[in-house]
Structure formats: C-alpha cells, structure tokens
C-alpha cells in the first residue's frame, strides 16, 4: 500500500465532509418531516369539531336514570329525558356551583346543596339560585345517537 498523497487526503477529507453534510441534512429533514407527517394524519374521529356525541355508556345511563351528566367542552351538562322529550342544561347550579340532578318523578332539576329547583326550561322554581340554568341543545339523530351542542353555536 502506498502512502496517500496530501492532495489525495484532502479530496478524501472533502469527500468525507460531503457525506456527513448529506447525512446531517437528511437527519434535519427527518426531524422537520416527522411532526408534519404526524400532523397530517387525520384524527380517528369523523370530524375534528362539532357537537358532542353521547357515548354508548352515557346513553345507557340516560335510558336507565332518565338523566346523565356529560362533559361538553370542559363544562358539565345534564341531559335528561322527560315525557319522551330530550333536554340539556349546564349542570352547574347558578347559586354556589354544585352539580344539579334530575328528579324524574317531579319533572324538576334539583340542586342538593341549598334545595334549589329548576323547571324543564331551566327557570328557577324555588330556592336561592339567582339565575336560570344555561340551555344546551340535545337532539336525537336518525341513527339513535344523541348530540349535544351549545345554543348559540
């Protein structure tokens, strides 16, 4: 084996540098591409936005107890069934913020903390709550699922 000449060693060094440069360029492109590829993969749900659907579990509870409390974009919402009508209201009592429940026998919503009562329009029937409950919209889809959406949306 003969000694590599200085010019040879320079070309090989240049060659080596080019390879590493190419490799690091590839590495960088990967680090940029990875998040973008993950980002572009569609979400498992049908659409990213839109109203909340009741899960099978929640629908079952609604069927059984005539009401269920579900989270809708960070708020608790009470969904209830009264005489085959669906209703939905913000479940937070307007007095001290306790969670209200539904009394199916009396067709009223009731807050156990200070005995506040609300009718099927969310209006205060008795007790200390100063304001009516926030209304939501509950609808039964043709396929039987129940959809909750905010009223002004």
């Amino acid at each position: 084996m003969e000694e590599p000449s200085p010019s040879d060693s320079r070309t090989s060094r240049r060659h080596f540098l080019d390879i590493i440069l190419g490799a690091s360029l590839l590495g960088w492109i990967t680090s940029v591409a990875y998040p973008i590829v993950r980002y572009l993969k569609p979400l498992p749900q049908t659409g990213p936005t839109g109203p909340t659907h009741l899960t099978r579990d929640e629908s079952g509870k609604l069927e059984q107890n005539k009401f269920v409390i579900v989270p809708v974009s960070g708020q608790r919402v009470i969904v209830l069934q009264s005489q085959d009508q669906l209703y939905a209201f913000g479940a937070k009592c307007t007095h001290e913020g306790c969670t209200i429940t539904y009394l199916p026998g009396q067709s009223v919503m009731w807050c156990p903390c200070h005995d506040g009562r609300f009718d099927m329009n969310g209006r205060v029937l008795s007790g200390p709550p100063p304001q009516p409950l926030t209304k939501y919209i509950a609808k039964k889809q043709p396929d039987g699922t129940i959809v909750i959406s905010e009223q002004h949306a």
Binding site: L17, L21, S24, L25, W28, T30, S31
Partner: peptide
C-alpha cells in the same frame, strides 16, 4: 441536535 449538526457541517463546508 440535528440542526446543530447540520449547522456545524455547513460551517465546516
């Protein structure tokens, strides 16, 4: 690290 390596290589180049 990837960006840093690339920068280093570009600098050497």
């Amino acid at each position: 690290a990837a960006i840093g390596l690339l920068m280093l290589m570009i600098y050497l180049k």
